[in-house]
Design a protein around this nucleic acid. Structure first.
Length: 567
RNA sequence: GGGCCUGUAGUGUAGUGGAUAGCACAUAAGCCUCCGGAGCUUAUAUCCUGGGUUCAAAUCCCAGCAGGCCCGCCA
């Protein structure tokens, strides 16, 4: 809704600029605390026009002509700023639109196909609290982009032939797998043991090399062994992801690109560019003129491929099927991903958009699957849910066990996901149990609570027969500050989705969600709904509560959180 | 040693050129016999340091300091 209003404002101001004889390519429009939209264009024009911005703003405002049916109520200048205010009808129409659009409000304005890769952790153990930062950022981004209107396909890129997987496969042949454990945890046990073994006895490294050569050459028995190891780990990882409401459309395997010949094709294309050379038997690409100090190895001296090479083939394949290719990667991939982009552009292929998130470390240092130093996502979810259970038990003692369990599952997951997504990806963080289990007041559960509150009012109103969802209402009677603030906030959903999908920053939506819940709770506190002074007002406020319910459930869905009707 | 990212109340963070630096936790004080108190209101900041660019800098540039990540024929 905000986007439509902004379009009107843009057109009115552009026409005024024309009349004044001013030229500006950017009107510098943004939502503001001083108006529905503000423009700072007068600052931009000041030096070219050799006038002070205040005068320019005044002149622009004077020449503005507001069309008859516009949502614009008035345009005024405040010093150098141009402030634009919307008519009350803008708010009324927002409510109508929310009801009409059910679930799609504030979205659907973008189009195109996107392939989004996220998580892609090595299948050598369970996801830990660092991996799920990738998963939560990736999945939230997926939901944002989908809401914005894109056709989004999510990928988990499975390393099924690298050194780590060879080690897992070797470990399975040498140690017993604990069948009583969750599969990915059992894999981690043998993987850690194998790494310790390899460190003690470096000669064993040759056995690993041999396995990798066999896989690369297509040896069926070894491939099957690798596949079993990978499947076993992925099964557990998939379970963990589903507990967080995260699902991938495709699990794409690295080995597919070796077997299809795509990797050899890429190598041939690079050779044609004359950038490759041999170095100690390995094939390398010289990227020095692009600012990379060292050569990039694309083929080992024994002829086997590397992650980088397979990744090039994978990206070339993705780019052929989508308009945009987006990867969510950890900070350790910064260098390799910029090398990947460079090489792709050298062979004339589109580059992916890459979102880098910084590391989650433990107070005692960084996490490592190999060394067994990590906190698993399963462990985190379990402990948070237990904590949530005691919270629910305390607040709703009268409810049954099933209710408490279900609510603590929804609330626990929301707390974990929101905690991760609210922080900007470029900040590195230190995982702290105390903080993770502290149900911070305005996190995911707070947004869910606001939704449950809205549901509760509607339930009561329905029981009392004062309201049903099909009722008409008159938005013009909603004039309290908190009512207007709440509707304005809801109207701005499209702007939040637009910004988040342009900048690929899911935390923008997390902040929006919290602000929306704030606006709802302020309305709730100051304005009586069921005991409104007259019936018409009561019905309109109920409609507002219903709209809030719809938008809150929508925003919860965009964040991947469930929307309990009672908690 | 080189490269990239980060540095904002006691703590965790939002804000990446413009109007009073937003929020939470913790601390302190308050809120309707009324729709769910996981709520609402109020109090607390040398924006790491030093230079520079600009009409305007937390935001851009340079130098330093602190933390994270990378610089593998690992992924």
């Amino acid at each position: 809704m905000f986007l439509e209003f902004r379009t009107e404002v843009k057109s009115v101001i552009e026409k005024s600029l024309d009349k004044c004889g001013f030229r500006a390519e950017n009107l510098d429009l943004s939502p503001s605390q001083h108006a529905d939209i503000s423009s700072r264009v007068a600052f931009r024009l000041a030096s070219a026009e050799r006038k002070n911005p205040k005068e320019i703003a005044e002149k622009i405002v004077e020449m503005c002509e507001i069309p008859e049916n516009s949502y614009i109520d008035r345009i005024i200048s405040t010093g150098p700023y141009i402030n634009i205010f919307a008519k009350h009808r803008y708010l009324e129409d927002t409510l109508v639109r929310i009801k009409e659009d059910q679930g799609r409000f504030g979205g659907g304005f973008c189009q195109g196909k996107i392939i989004l890769e996220h998580t892609s952790a090595n299948p050598n153990g369970p996801l830990h609290v660092g991996h799920i930062r990738n998963s939560v950022i990736g999945d939230t981004l997926y939901r944002i982009l989908k809401h914005a209107g894109y056709d989004v396909e999510t990928h988990y890129y499975v390393n099924d032939m690298g050194r780590q997987i060879a080690i897992v496969s070797w470990a399975l042949a040498n140690f017993d797998l604990d069948g009583s454990k969750k599969s990915d945890h059992a894999i981690a046990d043998v993987y850690i043991r194998a790494n310790a073994e390899l460190e003690k006895d470096p000669d064993k490294k040759r056995e690993i090399d041999r396995l990798m050569q066999l896989v690369e050459s297509g040896d069926v028995e070894t491939i099957n062994r690798f596949d079993r190891a990978v499947d076993h780990a992925i099964e557990g990882i998939r379970q963990t992801l589903s507990m967080m409401n995260i699902y991938h459309d495709q699990y794409v395997r690295e080995s597919d690109f070796v077997r299809s010949g795509a990797v050899s094709d890429i190598i041939e294309q690079l050779k044609l560019q004359g950038r490759t050379k041999m170095d100690d038997g390995a094939l390398v690409v010289d990227l020095e003129d692009y600012g990379f100090e060292k050569d990039l190895v694309i083929q080992r001296s024994d002829g086997t491929s590397l992650y980088t090479t397979r990744d090039l083939a994978y990206h070339e394949w993705k780019a052929r099927q989508a308009d945009r290719v987006i990867d969510v990667l950890g900070a350790d991939h910064k260098l390799i991903s910029s090398q990947l982009k460079t090489v792709l552009s050298i062979i004339g292929k589109p580059e992916p958009e890459i979102i880098i998130f910084e590391f989650v470390s433990l107070p005692e240092g960084s996490m490592s699957t190999r060394r067994g130093k990590f906190i698993t996502a399963d462990d985190l979810l379990e402990q948070v849910e237990r904590q949530a259970f005691s919270e629910v038990d305390r607040r709703r003692p009268e409810m049954g066990e099933d209710f408490k369990k279900e609510v603590s599952r929804m609330v626990g997951m929301a707390a974990v996901r929101y905690d991760i997504v609210k922080v900007s990806p470029e900040k590195s963080t230190v995982f702290d149990w105390k903080q993770a289990l502290d149900f911070e007041k305005q996190g995911g559960p707070y947004i869910q609570y606001s939704h449950a509150r809205a549901c509760s009012i509607l339930r009561k109103a329905e029981e009392e027969g004062i309201w049903n969802a099909g009722n008409g209402f008159d938005g013009s009677v909603l004039v309290e500050d908190t009512e207007i603030g709440l509707i304005r906030k809801m109207a701005g959903l499209d702007h939040a989705v637009e910004t988040a999908s342009q900048e690929l920053k899911p935390n923008i939506i997390a902040i929006y969600a919290r602000e929306l819940a704030d606006a709802f709770n302020q309305f709730y506190r100051f304005v009586p709904v069921l005991s409104s002074e007259d019936e018409q007002l009561c019905k309109s406020r109920l409609a507002l509560v219903d709209c809030s319910r719809i938008v809150l459930s929508e925003i919860l869905d965009i964040l991947g959180l469930e929307a309990p009707e009672s908690m």
